[in-house]
Design a protein around this nucleic acid. Structure first.
Length: 596
RNA sequence: GGUCUCGUAGCUCAGUUGGAUAGAGCAAUAGCCUUCUAAGCUAUGGGUCGCAGGUUCGAAUCCUGCCGGGAUCACCA
């Protein structure tokens, strides 16, 4: 039973009885009472003054009296200005905890009647360089949002679209061909790093050549176009497109190297996909759609043969859809893949986890699909996240300020190890146990650090100041979980058993009440997080929960409590909080250790 | 320049469809380990919620203008 809904109805009733009017349901605002006031739920009476025609205080008091007399669960009330604070009987909360304890996947929606099919695309790497910090945010977000959406009972498919073709790919291939000397990926240098190095090499040599040409009197613009290297790269792309066997085999080999390298990073990050698409397979899609649109008169063809869409009515510019030589651009492909996906999966919704630098692109994509008459275009959602910046600004690969994903993951583990050693936490564990705990903590610190901030906001990351392990961090929450598990282990050792039914007559403290109320909000938090595609909301909630638990833990003995009913209650409460921490962290893709 | 977006404590961030005295963490200072893990707990200091108007019982939140940061506006992806 939903207590808030019940209260709402009761208030509706009360207003009817007292003032002989039926207010619009929207006027009845029930919210959780703020911490510093007494009560559990608060009715804001201001909107009801029009009906009562009395002062806020008087209206609140009258409603309070009525509700206390007529609603069984309401035990007390108090009035502060126009706020009516209602206290729910503590036995209600205890029995609420009882039902939660018996629910295996508390907060998750099970057996939804008409589950939606949702596609979520994330990661979308280029196969010419290794993954960096920006990709980490993307991957963590995509993975976490997929899990969060699943809690609402829908079917979610995670897909990755690998950008494995184009001029940038040819650049690293060309550099490898020229200067690679047959180098192969090794333990020291995995494939994505190797290919990335040649991409950088290309850029360096290309710049040299430009400088030479400029020195010989060419304008910079011309030099960029005329440099032999870029011409060769373009030639290579043409060969690739005409399936030249030599180019294709090099391309295949190098792509395999990179993809194998990515797999290692993905595995370490703990993300995965249900399906991987390759742009080399899909880049020709979409042309048909453009031609159909052209026939319908939705698009226009210019004299040189290029096809455009006019979006000036929508407040945007004109956008090219097909080049004058008839080849596809990025937009063409995306139109094609969107169409293919909705058809393949019969999807109800498609989410693209892509940086906010592509806001314009997705705006156009959506409009164009709408113009083509696809009703599903409105269920295409661009989950636009902010860039990760360094203290000195944006990461720039050219200036070598990119934070490499693998390096960062390694560093996190090292820091976790150092930290654990300093605190003397690792004594008595086997090497494999140690390793596992350290990795869990290091990775948890990084993931939590990134996911706790609102996805759409630009965030700052300072590589010099290592990520914290105290305060609002992953390890803090993991530690809280480990503490709880330790209590449970001790309780088991003592042979303590959890009763099936808690004694609802026991006295509980405010802190305990607060904790039950936090548990009560979990399903709501999940729903909100799913609606907003925001892991951050779960992260902040779990932090709150852990913080409150630690305060409770500090001044409430659990196993040492003499009163058996109270001890059992506290154990139950702790165990349930542990479950929620595990569940919530799981939704962020973060594991929690039983000890640390 | 057009469009979008952000601006909250020294730093990193929270702040529900407009609600009560704007909150955490880090950093600083002072305390708490013979009792369930001190990666913890307690206390203190720190704010013109970018600025100025407006809407109303009530604005960090909504509207307008301005200031400042970022993104984007390619026959690149």
């Amino acid at each position: 039973m939903d207590i808030e809904l019940m209260l709402k109805k009761a208030v509706l009733n009360a207003v009817g009885k007292l003032y002989e009017q039926t207010p619009d349901e929207k006027l009845i605002q029930i919210q959780k009472t703020r911490k510093d006031f007494d009560g559990d739920f608060t009715l804001v009476v201001f909107p009801l003054l029009r009906m009562s025609k009395k002062s806020p205080e008087q209206t609140a008091s009258e409603l309070g009296e009525y509700l206390k007399d007529n609603v069984e669960q309401i035990s007390e009330f108090n009035v502060i200005k126009g706020f009516l604070n209602l206290s729910i009987d503590k036995s209600f909360w205890i029995s609420y905890l009882n039902t939660v304890v018996q629910d295996d996947n508390y907060g998750f929606i099970k057996n939804k009647e008409n589950p939606k099919t949702i596609l979520i695309e994330y990661s979308s790497p280029n196969t010419n360089k290794p993954l960096h910090l920006g990709h980490i945010r993307n991957n963590l977000l995509g993975y976490s949002v997929a899990k969060i959406l699943e809690t609402q009972g829908d079917k979610v498919y995670k897909v990755n679209l690998v950008n494995d073709r184009g001029i940038h790919i040819c650049k690293s291939m060309l550099a490898y061909q020229k200067w690679g000397k047959g180098e192969k990926p090794s333990k020291e240098k995995k494939g994505d790093k190797l290919v990335g190095d040649y991409y950088v090499k290309f850029d360096q040599e290309y710049k040299k050549e430009i400088n030479d040409l400029v020195a010989k009197g060419q304008s910079e613009e011309n030099a960029k176009k005329n440099a032999l290297l870029i011409l060769e790269a373009q030639e290579m792309l043409r060969k690739w497109e005409s399936k030249d066997s030599e180019v294709i085999s090099l391309w295949k080999e190098m792509n395999q190297w990179v993809l194998a390298g990515f797999d290692v990073t993905y595995k370490n990050l703990g993300v995965d996909f249900d399906k991987v698409y390759f742009e080399s397979d899909t880049y020709k899609l979409g042309k048909k759609l453009i031609l159909e649109g052209l026939e319908k008169g939705v698009f226009v063809k210019k004299e040189d043969g290029s096809v455009w869409v006019d979006l000036t009515k929508e407040g945007l510019d004109q956008k090219i859809l097909l080049r004058s030589d008839g080849t596809s651009v990025y937009m063409t492909q995306d139109l094609g893949t969107a169409h293919q996906r909705f058809t393949d999966y019969n999807a109800d919704e498609a989410i693209y986890v892509v940086g906010n630098e592509q806001n314009y692109h997705f705006q156009v994509l959506k409009i164009v699909l709408g113009k083509l008459g696809f009703s599903w275009s409105e269920y295409l959602y661009h989950l636009s996240y902010g860039m990760v910046e360094l203290p000195e600004g944006k990461m720039k690969s050219r200036e070598g300020t990119v934070v490499d994903a693998d390096d960062l993951l390694n560093e996190m583990t090292l820091t976790a190890e150092e930290m654990s050693r300093e605190l003397g936490k690792l004594e008595g564990y086997s090497d494999s146990e140690k390793k596992q705990i350290i990795e869990t903590i290091g990775l948890g610190a990084l993931k939590y650090f990134i996911l706790k901030v609102d996805p759409k906001k630009t965030m700052t990351f300072d590589p010099k100041e290592s990520i914290d392990f105290n305060g609002n961090t992953g390890p803090f929450i993991q530690y809280t979980f480990a503490r709880i598990q330790s209590i449970i282990r001790k309780a088991n050792d003592k042979g303590m058993e959890l009763p099936i039914e808690l004694n609802s007559k026991i006295k509980i403290s405010n802190k305990e009440l607060q904790l039950i109320k936090l548990i009560y909000s979990y399903p709501e938090v999940l729903k909100e997080a799913a609606n907003d595609y925001s892991p951050a909301q779960i992260a902040n909630y779990i932090f709150d929960l852990a913080k409150e638990f630690n305060q409770f833990y500090h001044d409430h003995p659990i196993l040492g409590e003499d009163d058996k009913s109270i001890s059992e209650f506290r154990l139950h409460l702790s165990k349930q909080l542990g479950e929620i921490i595990k569940s919530g962290m799981g939704l962020l893709g973060i594991n929690v250790p039983d000890r640390m």
